[in-house]
Design a protein around this nucleic acid. Structure first.
Lengths: 232, 232
DNA sequence: CGTCCCGTTGATCCCTATCAAATGTAGTGG
DNA sequence: CCACTACATTTGATAGGGATCAACGGGACG
């Protein structure tokens, strides 16, 4: 049975495939594999041989590095439309981190060996990937600056604001981060402990800046949280 | 008078230009500008419009971000052969950081608008740039992990080892970092203060791990410093 | 309905920033 | 060539932000 070709419209809007012709999109889609992930499933793990690269169709992933003594650091979040796991494209043979589903997710997977073929077919792909990686590099530098110079309170405020920006949905209470987040997660994103995050959120909740429940955070007053993030 | 074309051999060895034909190399060199920098000179400054991109011919640069309250964070060092300031290629209109010469340096500069032309001429350029940026992203993630989970002592040890790896020359005392480094510089690379760095270096000097003078550091016992960097 | 996971809150301690001051070193101009 | 100055480094004293240790409360899910 011939593989059913996914509809082009699924991926047409994605930055990575910008400017691709219909034919090229179809060519790319003939070899794609779609994979469903339950929360907690991993797409790949740190140190594993990089056999594939991916685009997130929907859902949410977190990418993390694990230290020798088992501490986890969340390196970034993957949102729908993002490429990830392009280790091969950047001359690595293994994945430098682990990608884990936070919510139920759908992932598009291609064999890493096809990357070169796709680029040959459509050189703009490398340009688009360069843009994506460049933006992430900039974000990484911003985090380095925060970790180096800012106190925990500001870092946590910034992390919340960033999540709201990338994955916030308006509710009557305010901006809800629309995927599950634990205190531990926020701690791993900001280089602190879940205890400190818990204390901060409790304090902010008392002041009416946020509202939080189990694995759920809503920012009720974005401006005042920004004021904390920007405090000089 | 026709501009004198620089010799191809100058840049042939650079990763960015890998796989380029002689003709393409010549084409690229016809529009290059060479710029000499004295220590302390900047190539570009944070926030400035990104009109050019660069390759370092020789010397050493540091790239830093400056916070609103004036603190500096060293984002990375530029070594000969590295591309830098490719803001435009990653869809930014301004430079996100400041690049300053640490030693006397020679820089090759091209108008940013030529980036697209060069890529059209030679698509491998985008692939090579992607590799370079990807590697930097990986380094940035490593630093994020260090800043999040490791104590100052290990971070400083790692920073020294990294400088030795990238710019170390063997001397009779050990591995000398072959560009001027102050305590302040190391502090800005590791998210600590010059006082703490000074205390650490003094301690290590007493134990015979390093030897340091004004703006100069030599690692005399790489293995024992590695042990500190790796301590679990 | 018990168990696991997540969150809260208190008490304590220590790493490292901060404050302060002195010493050393290179460079400069008279 | 020396006095003067600017910068780099060292070292001590102190304080405080957060990590760590500890214990408990509460909701979700099998």
């Amino acid at each position: 049975m011939a593989p059913r070709i996914l509809d082009r419209s699924l991926i047409r809007g994605f930055e990575l495939f910008r400017d691709m012709t219909e034919d090229n999109l179809d060519a790319v889609l003939t070899t794609v594999q779609v994979r469903r992930l339950a929360p907690g499933d991993t797409v790949f793990e740190q140190g594993e041989a990089a056999r594939e690269f991916f685009v997130l169709l929907n859902g949410h992933l977190k990418v993390m590095q694990i230290t020798k003594d088992g501490q986890q650091v969340v390196v970034r979040h993957v949102h729908p439309g993002d490429v990830f796991g392009i280790a091969k494209a950047i001359k690595r043979n293994d994945y430098p981190a682990t990608a884990e589903a936070v919510t139920e997710s759908l992932v598009l997977a291609w064999s890493a060996s096809q990357w070169q073929d796709f680029v040959a077919l459509n050189p703009a792909l490398a340009v688009n990937a360069l843009e994506a990686v460049g933006e992430r590099l900039h974000e990484a530098h911003t985090r380095i600056r925060e970790l180096s110079t800012e106190e925990v309170e500001r870092r946590v405020a910034n992390a919340l604001l960033r999540m709201v920006r990338k994955a916030g949905t308006a509710t009557e209470d305010g901006m809800l981060i629309d995927f599950p987040v634990t205190r531990q997660d926020i701690a791993e994103m900001t280089g602190t402990t879940l205890h400190t995050v818990s204390r901060l959120l409790s304090g902010w909740q008392d002041q009416g800046l946020v509202k939080s429940a189990r694995r759920k955070v809503t920012v009720t007053n974005v401006d005042r949280l920004k004021a904390i993030a920007d405090q000089t």
